[in-house]
Simulated assay, not measured.
Amino acid sequence: MTEAHPWSRYVAIGDSFTEGIGDPDPATPGGFRGWADRTAEVLASTADDFAYANLAIRGRLLQQIIDEQAEAALALHPDLVTVSAGGNDIIRPGTDPDEVAGRLEGLVQTLSSEGATVVVFTGPDIGATPVLGRMRGKVAIYNENIHAVALRNDAVVADMWSLRELADPRMWAPDRLHFSPLGHHTIARAVLASLNVENDLEDQVLPEAAPRQWRAARREDIGWAREYFVPWVLRRVRHQSSGDGRSAKRPDAVSVVYRQE
């Protein structure tokens, strides 16, 4: 069981990654569980009156997170905040990772202004990911900026780039843009480790994957592009977002129950 920790009020902000997309769970508000819910459940297991809110909404860009979620997060008086933001900006053509990181730093300063511990995230190594892999260098530059932002502002870094296990396709959802339940579980373990919180979440050791035949892999790639990538591109062209009309799944800080994996 988890050892005691100093936090009693946790607020998560961000986009689809923090909302938990890719980790479906009908019993969870919004229908997705995700690493943030999993992290909160563990933290709640040894803290009396622990409360958790999740303000993240899929598709949100950094400026939207700043404008829509920062003030709402502070209004809940958290002593722990996780913020993963800027990823949707970075994968868009023409964005400057240095400029995006500068705005992220302002957000971190705002969130920490009342003494909360702030956790930020590096992006995963997407070098082997179809389509997104070509943006690997841009993500790496953004990640270096995130480390610098954390150092200057006494924030905690949950370093997903260093999680080599995330290179396994089984860590990713069928859309190849979000993490699978296994991926979210792995990231929850990493977040807890970054906070020096011991826990009972097991390290998931995967058996060696069966080799993929070239022809079958190409069929899968074509099917993926038709079902997921083309709609994503069309939303960009039409200036639409998967989060349009959606609200936060956990807008209020409430208690959560630890679920043994």
Score class of each variant (00 low, 15 high):
Pro6Leu: 06
Ile13Val: 13
Asp15Arg: 03
Thr18Val: 10
Glu19Met: 09
Asp23Asn: 07
Ala27Pro: 04
Pro29Lys: 01
Gly30Asp: 01
Gly30Pro: 02
Ala36His: 01
Asp37Tyr: 02
Thr39Ser: 09
Glu41Asn: 05
Ala56Tyr: 01
Ile57Ser: 00
Ile57Tyr: 05
Gln64Tyr: 07
Ala70Ile: 15
Leu80Ser: 02
Val83Leu: 12
Ala85Pro: 00
Ala85Cys: 06
Gly87Pro: 03
Ile91Gly: 14
Pro97Met: 03
Thr110Ala: 15
Ser112Gln: 11
Ser113Trp: 09
Glu114His: 15
Val120Leu: 09
Val120Lys: 00
Gly123Trp: 08
Leu132His: 08
Met135Gln: 12
Ala140Trp: 09
Val149Phe: 02
Leu151Trp: 11
Arg152Ala: 14
Arg164Met: 12
Leu166His: 02
Asp168Gln: 07
Pro169Lys: 01
Met171Asp: 02
Trp172Asp: 03
Trp172Tyr: 09
Asp175Leu: 00
Phe179Tyr: 13
His185Leu: 07
Ala190Trp: 04
Ala190Gly: 10
Leu192Lys: 03
Ala193Met: 09
Asn196Phe: 10
Val197Gly: 01
Gln204Cys: 14
Glu208Tyr: 10
Ala209Thr: 11
Trp214Phe: 14
Arg215Ile: 13
Ala216Phe: 10
Glu220Ser: 13
Asp221Pro: 00
Val230Cys: 08
Leu234Lys: 15
Ser241Tyr: 06
Gly245Asn: 07
Ala248Asp: 04
Lys249Thr: 15
Arg250His: 12
Pro251Ala: 12
Pro251Leu: 09
Asp252His: 14
Ser255Met: 14
Val256Thr: 07
Gln260Val: 14
